[in-house]
Design a protein around this nucleic acid. Sequence first.
DNA 1: AATTCTATCCCTGAAAAACAGGAGATTTTA
DNA 2: TAAAATCTCCTGTTTTTCAGGGATAGAATT
Lengths: 205, 205
Amino acid sequence: MVASVFIVDDHYMVIEGIRSILQHEKSIEWAGHASNAASCLAFLKQQQPDVILMDINLPDKSGIDLCKEVKEMYPSVFIIGLSTFNQQSFIQKMMENGASGYVLKNATQEELTEAVTEVMKGKTYLSLEASQALRKNISAEMPVLTRREKEVLELIVDGMTNNEIAQKLFISVTTVDTHRKNLLAKLSAKNTASLVRIATQMHLV
Amino acid sequence: MVASVFIVDDHYMVIEGIRSILQHEKSIEWAGHASNAASCLAFLKQQQPDVILMDINLPDKSGIDLCKEVKEMYPSVFIIGLSTFNQQSFIQKMMENGASGYVLKNATQEELTEAVTEVMKGKTYLSLEASQALRKNISAEMPVLTRREKEVLELIVDGMTNNEIAQKLFISVTTVDTHRKNLLAKLSAKNTASLVRIATQMHLV
DNA sequence: AATTCTATCCCTGAAAAACAGGAGATTTTA
DNA sequence: TAAAATCTCCTGTTTTTCAGGGATAGAATT
């Protein structure tokens, strides 16, 4: 059985690299490529590949969102996340949104082909680094923020004061302050500065 | 004349992609590749290629630093910076450290080969996006921070208060406050939160 | 030699954030 | 349905930041 593989990545060199890696594999067929989410969706209207290798960072929308959309429209297509970083939050969100695997861009030829073949069997493939990142952080950190907390956090990062946030969200300043206190506690930050740094480093905003 | 090209990039897929792109070019010869700065330097002790394609993000040291070192030791080697982002500060630093060109990873085959051939002639090659980024920001923003201001900024981002910073640097709290005010002014930030966000986004810390 | 830049220090007063310690109402979920 | 989570609001106090000045001394530049 031959698996057709499609690639979404905004870097031509990466597309070329993957193509060059996979072309030797007899069990894998090149379905095509897209450099952004829009042309990926356009392609899928015409035909559906078996597997999509999907970069997390796309110019028009995040791979995490695209993954969700594609899986809703074409549930039978397997998606493998692709990125340079093994950030736990990314990997987790990608898997939550229906991805079947996650591979880092420094993966070897063996890893990549194994990922595709395993996923085709309906299994899940996580590269060593990815699964380690997932394991390490699932047990520890990565706090769960509520919808409102995320909302407040983003406005704080945008440089708004409690007062401004309160007006924007039509709630009391004291409420905003409470959310802020909870954010500080959840992210183990002692003040605004560390809160913003932690939030950006964790890619929460 | 045949140009030998060496690549330093920590992503196997990118190396494969570049190799696949350049192998069709008769005027270009593949010298080899390294996935970190250390093995790059080790390779250069044995032989020197004509051109090095060098990623900005390397696991052991930044491409910007590596560029400087290589140019000091082997001034005749041409270096082309390689990265996913067209951040003005990165491009500028790379060029200041002796690079002859800068190419983004979404470059086409034509761009990449042109970059190599132009640089071989002793010319400078900047991809369209790179030169635009350079032009746009050189005229505007990118504030110049003094050594002390950078120091204070880093401690602020680390979540320290003026008081703590003052004790750490053995200066008065009012001095720290002055630096802080200057930072807010220079980065056009209205408070700590936006200061931290801007600093991290500009990769100042 | 004069100017600019940098780093240092000081002041006042207002605004904002951090910290402590509650509590009621609604939604989710087990 | 009962428990847990979430969102909401409150009263205080203390600490930190922000805004607005001004000032001195040394280093670098013109």
